[in-house]
């Protein structure tokens, strides 16, 4: 089957800033693809090129096999987009904006729209200017999820949502996947993408540095473990995949590689654990460890 999104080596510069520097990305139909990268890495730029809003300087981007710049309108009827920073018309209500967007995309089932408004707890009769960031994001999400489209392009869609609404969002994305839709989900938070994505691509300075399934990427991630044990835990230091172990007064703290987690937890159980805190890996840790410090702070490169 053809890829829903297929990007080959695209480049894009804004003046002297090189936003994309030979980016490759491929998304299979019917999958949720996590598009992960720090701020300024080029996620939004990539999505805008896929939408035909920006034109790539070099390389090739394909959406459903078509050219996103030349066939923009025909392709847009098959997708829905949620921008990273949703701006609404100040004097149109949220409900009007939702209806407008779904109609411009070819219409949506009103019952589905109302159901989504309820699930996201959105009052559609408020004027655009009175919504908070999170509520503006809900408006765009509802408009996108209500439409009957094949592909969802979501640019950091949960940045302004509270945890409760993020759970609703995750539910909706799972439903979308069950009904066979393809989702490109960009984020700078690893944990948000991890729970939903079948595959993840990590972008850094305008390039994809890692791509694969979660299991493929396990070797890149490290989980932080804090534990209080009755028996001394120093012995864990010798296990494969354990790093930076510190132990004192029955308190132990260490990091463990994703693909060795199971073995280490089994050994930890034998040590009579009283208290246990496990912190999931973060994107920042990952990038810091594998690509050095500047990856996190400076997204794009400035040409000399």
């Amino acid at each position: 089957m053809n890829a829903a999104i297929d990007i080959h080596h695209i480049e894009k510069s804004f003046g002297r800033v090189k936003a994309l520097d030979g980016l490759d990305l491929s998304v299979e139909p019917g999958t949720v693809h996590g598009f992960l990268g720090p701020n300024g890495a080029g996620k939004s730029t990539t999505i805008r090129i896929l939408l035909g809003l920006l034109r790539a300087d070099a390389g090739q981007a394909r959406l459903f096999g078509g050219d996103p710049w030349a066939d923009a309108v025909a392709l847009h009827r098959r997708l829905a987009y949620v921008p990273g920073d949703v701006v609404l018309w100040p004097n149109l209500t949220g409900g009007e904006a939702i209806d407008l967007f779904t109609r411009l995309r070819g219409g949506a089932d009103p019952a589905r729209r109302d159901e989504l408004c309820q699930r996201f707890d959105l009052d559609p009769s408020k004027k655009g200017r009175t919504y908070s960031k999170g509520n503006r994001q809900k408006v765009a999400l509802i408009a996108a999820l209500a439409a009957d489209v094949e592909l969802l392009l979501l640019d950091e869609p949960t940045a302004g949502l509270d945890p409760l609404m993020e759970a609703v969002f995750q539910e909706c994305i799972r439903e979308a996947k069950e009904s066979g839709r393809t989702v490109l989900l960009s984020s700078h938070v690893l944990a948000q993408v991890e729970v939903l994505a079948d595959r993840i691509s990590i972008i850094r300075q305008g390039r994809i540095v890692e791509t694969g399934s979660l299991t493929d990427l396990r070797h890149l991630t490290r989980t932080t473990v804090d534990a209080v044990t009755d028996r001394p835990a120093d012995t864990l230091a010798g296990l494969p995949g354990v790093h930076g172990l510190e132990a004192a007064d029955g308190h132990v703290r260490f990091e463990v590689d994703g693909d060795h987690l199971a073995a280490v937890v089994r050994r930890l159980g034998d040590l009579d654990v009283h208290a246990l805190t496990v912190r999931p890996p973060t994107l920042e840790q990952l990038l810091l460890r594998h690509y050095g410090d500047q990856a996190v702070h400076s997204g794009a490169t400035v040409a000399a």
């Binding site: 149109l92 209500t93 411009l104 004027k127």
Partner: peptide, 23 residues
Amino acid sequence: PPRPGPPRAAAWLAGPFTLALRL
């Protein structure tokens, strides 16, 4: 103070021309 508005768009608000007219 801001007033609430219609929770649904009027039927005519459906295309680029009518959107421009509204704006």
